[in-house]
Nucleic acid binder design. Structure first.
Lengths: 247, 247
DNA sequence: CGCACTGTTGAAAACATTCAACAACGGTGG
DNA sequence: CCACCGTTGTTGAATGTTTTCAACAGTGCG
C-alpha cells in the first residue's frame, strides 16, 4: 500500500531512454488520440496555463482508488498506469496512459481507479473546479471530454475482449502490437520496442501471472516472432503477422 | 450473423414474466443510474418527444459493431445486450443494458459494439443529429452524457477486474449479486431473481464457456448458496454472503 | 413425432497457476 | 571497490482449473 519504492535503477535508465525528450505541449498535436489532442491550439494553451506541470518520480501515486477526485490530469511525458485493486493482492491494470492522454477528465465524485507512474514522468495537473470553470465558458470543450471518455470506453471494451476471450499467447501478441502502434503514433522509435513496465505490470494488465507472461514471451521468441532484449522487445513479424503467428 | 431467431418460446414467456409492466417514462426516476435518470423532468419529456418508442422482438439487432452511429438509444423496457465479436465465433458481452440505460449516447463515428435485445423490449431511439441539436441548446445536458459514459467506463473497469482476476465461481457469484442489485434498484422482484439471458450469454459476459457456467452454478447450488429454477435463480445467501461463500 | 435448440453432466485434454529454485541486475553499506 | 542483498526475470515440475469433446435430457415448434 505505502510501497512506493523505485524499481531497480537500471530500469529507470531504460525508461529515460524509452521516454527521451520532454516534448513541449505545442507538439502534442502529433498524436491523434488523447484528450489534449482534441482541443484547438488556443484552448490547449489556456487550459494548460490553468494547471501545473509536475515532475514525478518512478512509481509515484497520482491518485488512489476511492479518493475524492479533486483534480484531473494529463500525461505530458512518461507512462502512467491505471489500476483497480481488490484485497491488496489482486490488481487489474485497466490501461497504460501515454503523453496526451487525459486521466479522470470525466470523473464524477471519486476516483474509480488508482494511478501511478511507471518510471519518471511529467504530469499536468489541474483542480477539478478550475477545469469545470474553464469548460463552463466553452461548452464545446465538453465535447472533447465526451470524445475522450468514449475513447477510453472503447479501449476498455477491446481490453475486455482480450481478457475474456484470448489465450495467453494471443493476449501478449495483441498487447505488443497495440503498444507498438501507440508509441509509433507518438513518433517514438519502436524498433526495438521499449517496454518500460515490469512483467508483473503486463501480467496484471492481461489477467495472467508473471510466470505465464515470461513463458509466453519466451515461446514467441522461440517461434521467431519476437526478440527479447532487456527492457525492450524487437517485433520480427509486423503487427498483423504477429497476431497471425499465434492463431 | 443473420441468425436472429427467437430463443425457445418458453424463455420468451419467462422473459415477459421477468419484464412485466411497461413502465412509463415518467417513473424512470426510480432508478438512480442510467442516462435518462440524469435529466430533469422537463428535459426528459422534451427529449423523449424528439425520438420514438420502438417495440422490439426477442434477439433483434439494434445496431451492429462497425456500423455508422446514426442514432442513439435508451432502453425503456426489457434487456439489451451489448457485445463485441471477433471472427464470428468469439463474443465478449460488455454489458446488459436495463431500462433507463442509454446506449451509445457518447458514440463518435461508428458503433464500437453491437446491441441486441434479449427477449421482447421497448426501446427509445433518436437520430444522432436531433440528439446533438437538442444538446447544443442545453450544454448542461452534455454533463449528463459525460456522467453516463463515465459510469459505463467504471462498470467496464469492474468487469475487467472480474474477467482478469476472478475464478469462475467468483465471477458467477459477483454476476448474480450485481444483477440482483441492479434489478432491485429498478424496483423489480428479485426473489427469485430472473435471469432472462441464456447460459451462453452469461458465459460470454464472464469470459467462460457454457459448460463452466452450468457446472459452477450447480456447484453453488450444491453448496446451498443458490437455488436454480427455470429462467430464474433464488439467492439463498445475501449478496455479501454469496461472495463470501466462494472465497 | 421428429427436429433444433438450450441446458446439463461426464471424461479427457489443454491451459494457466502455484510452488520452487536460480540467474541477473543494480544499490547499499562496509 | 567489492560483497551483500533485495528485487526482477526466468525456467522447471506439479497442481488445479477450465476447456474441449461427447452424450443426453428437456422444451417448444413445425
Amino acid at each position: 500500500m505505502t510501497r512506493e519504492r523505485c524499481r531497480a535503477g537500471g530500469d529507470m535508465k531504460q525508461q529515460m531512454a524509452a521516454v527521451p525528450p520532454l516534448v513541449p505541449c505545442a507538439t502534442a498535436s502529433i498524436q491523434p488520440t488523447g484528450f489534449f489532442a482534441r482541443l484547438n491550439f488556443a484552448d490547449r494553451r489556456q487550459l494548460m496555463a490553468l494547471g501545473e506541470r509536475v515532475p514525478r518520480g518512478a512509481n509515484e501515486v497520482l491518485f488512489a482508488q476511492g479518493a475524492p477526485a479533486a483534480r484531473c490530469f494529463s500525461v505530458i511525458e512518461g507512462v502512467v498506469c491505471l489500476s483497480r485493486t481488490v484485497g491488496d493482492h489482486r490488481r487489474q491494470i485497466t490501461s497504460f496512459a501515454l503523453p496526451g492522454d487525459g486521466l479522470e477528465v470525466g470523473a464524477q465524485q471519486r476516483h474509480e481507479v488508482s494511478a501511478a507512474t511507471i518510471g519518471p514522468a511529467l504530469v499536468w495537473e489541474i483542480a477539478r473546479d478550475s477545469f469545470a470553470q474553464f469548460v463552463s465558458h466553452r461548452p464545446y470543450v465538453l465535447q472533447a471530454v465526451v470524445a475522450s471518455v468514449a475513447a477510453d470506453l472503447t479501449e476498455a471494451h477491446e481490453q475486455m475482449f482480450s481478457l475474456g476471450r484470448r489465450p495467453a499467447e494471443e493476449k501478449l501478441a495483441t498487447f505488443l502490437a497495440v503498444w507498438s502502434e501507440r508509441l509509433a503514433r507518438l513518433g517514438r522509435d519502436v524498433d526495438p520496442l521499449p517496454l518500460p513496465m515490469s512483467r508483473k505490470d503486463i501480467a496484471d494488465y492481461l489477467g495472467l501471472t508473471v510466470e505465464t507472461v515470461c513463458r509466453t514471451l519466451a515461446k514467441l521468441e522461440r517461434r521467431g516472432a519476437i526478440e527479447i532484449l532487456p527492457g525492450k522487445v524487437r517485433l520480427l513479424a509486423d503487427p498483423a503477422g504477429l497476431l497471425q503467428a499465434c492463431g
